[in-house]
Design a protein around this nucleic acid. Sequence first.
DNA 1: GTCTATAGGTGGATAGAC
DNA 2: GTCTATCCACCTATAGAC
Lengths: 201, 201
Amino acid sequence: MNSVHMVADRNDTKARLLTEARDLYVEEGPASFSLREVARRAGVSAAAVYRHYDGKEALFEQVCLAGLQVFYGYLVRALEEATPHERLVGSATQYLRFGLENPRDYRVLFMGAGPAHKHPPGKGKKPDATFQFLIDRVQECMNAGILHEDDPHEVATVIWAHVHGLVSLRLAGQLAHVGTDTQFAKLYHRSTERLVEGLSG
Amino acid sequence: MNSVHMVADRNDTKARLLTEARDLYVEEGPASFSLREVARRAGVSAAAVYRHYDGKEALFEQVCLAGLQVFYGYLVRALEEATPHERLVGSATQYLRFGLENPRDYRVLFMGAGPAHKHPPGKGKKPDATFQFLIDRVQECMNAGILHEDDPHEVATVIWAHVHGLVSLRLAGQLAHVGTDTQFAKLYHRSTERLVEGLSG
DNA sequence: GTCTATAGGTGGATAGAC
DNA sequence: GTCTATCCACCTATAGAC
């Protein structure tokens, strides 16, 4: 096995720094996110980090980009569905799956404290791509007559707010009373479907 | 006018520090929130802050508490409504008003970066009181037969997630395409009412 | 590619004068 | 109540040895 083909060696310092950086960020917050602490957790010196990343900000940028890659990996699966309706529902399902299976990435991408990090390019640009994806699913349903003709922008907006609200509150521990992830998923799907029906009918 | 009765003198350093602290937090994020910078903005030395607050964390705690006071000031107005249904809808309305009229306080209270600030007592305790308030409104509607009997916990959960999702995305600028605050308010009310109908019918 | 050493900077908090 | 001066901790980033 050539090292060139190894994507995530357990001892790959670069990859290790990336995950340690992400974990530190979500565990201790932006205020405590330091390059030195990331290096400590990864078991290397602070100076070593500069062999892999251009600095603190660049490191965090890569954390965001890596999270987006994972996120898109989930979203695109919804396109494998057969009908427009299934693709729309599937999008919501994949969004939920991403959040529950990658809570740390979700927090970095969608629960960053507003202007917490200034530069992270994944904050103002890519989520727009996400939004467009959802708009396309809605438009698709309207074209197929599955959803009543309406402003796809508006319907997509409300759906996004709804799923983001549910997932973010769940990950924040505010919805612990709902029970298991499976129970939460039922609630998620039921309320989302009813919301869509209510908005389109 | 006795100074004892003056709550917010323009030159009241203590009050000035509080608002400067809040603004710095929402503008620059937790990572850049420093006692020294707050003091600079307030036009006093860093040491002067300690005459009013016990330190950096204590200062931020007071920022959170002040925001909660304002928030509750909005919520309780919903209790002035005549019927359970109007009180439930009114709660959502007041929640929206608070967010649009006090975006900085809203960000501090509900859009803090997860574990961004560790101690702030307004994060794990008080929002529970907020949630209980909403549960009470829902239960009230069910008792009155206005909402179909269901788990008030669950219905309140979905409503909270929905309104929080809409307001937080709006304040994050992700819903700029919706238009004016008035237009956004229409969307907010319409989608919320349909959600409630869908969940209870 | 990783280390140690170091330069240069910011911040929290305290002491003591006024 | 506010100031200046100060201490100490921690950080980013770089230089140069290995």
